[in-house]
Amino acid sequence: MTEAAMHRRVASRVPRLRDAVQVGLPVAALAIMLAIIFWIRPAAFSFFGFTLLFRFAIPLVFASLSQMLVIMLGDIDLSNGSFVGLTTCVTALYLENAPAEATLIYVVMIVAYAAFGVLIYVQRLPSIIVTLGMSFIWLGASIILLPSPGGSAPDWLSEFMSWRPPCLPLPIWIAILAAGVGHFFITRSSYGAVLRGAGANARAVERAGWSLIGIRAATYAAAGLLALLAGLTLTGLTTSGDPNVAPAYTLLSVGAVILGGGSFTGGMVSPVGAVIGALTLSLAGSLLSFLQVPPTWQIGAQGVILFLVLAGRALTAERTQ
């Protein structure tokens, strides 16, 4: 083997190793947290226990995948949480009695999302400030619709969220499906390569004959659709609408994407990582109450968990580079 060929083989193995480490770390963190919980409360190791532990991870999984698509384009979405809030309001108000109107509103919301994505690109605006403005728009719209929490989720939605599918609990099924579909589209498929390219090297993708406006509109629309799914599943869990139900999702979803190996430089994201990151972050809260951390320290302990998991990534990144 020539030196050059050997060099190439090593070089191709290093990024693969880094990818494995980046997804492996949140997996390890998740496993450690689950181990601690089951050690304290062995009864939690059951179909029902898993369902309870991960119930509220479902909306966060979808919100994180939505955020991941935006981060993939090199942008950031600060309106994620209030979009989820607006979805819960629309769902709780209209989906049962006026499904056609509800669907129409959903479509308008997704089109608006895509339009803002195009606006950011065409006018070369900072996404951080445009999405901040969008968050006020979603919040305002949801307060106009539903000034105080209320409404009710359609029965089929609440029933679906408490459904007990065969083999695995519902949250686990949804996480596996979401991660699988995301992995197939974003990481494996040729379209995924183009989409990631639009974030990493937009010029190259444009020269190859792709319409960046089209890519951006489609990606933002997909992000809107995923945020919509987050809102629908959240309404199924809480059974009512609330404009201020999910402001924390905005930054938690960013955390999940980064935890799962994503980076803000654009083009570097991992759907599997983002899903596991979302599971890790939502389990952190349960872990702390199992450990009987006093409520006043719980949020601080979440910050420490975030540091611990990411510190592992920093250490391993140094080794592999």
Partner: peptide, 16 residues
């Protein structure tokens, strides 16, 4: 309140 939030958002985006 809802209209206030909505207009705030629109104005922020308009200005940038």
């Amino acid at each position: 309140a809802g209209v206030r939030f909505l207009l705030t958002g629109v104005l922020i985006i308009l200005i940038v």
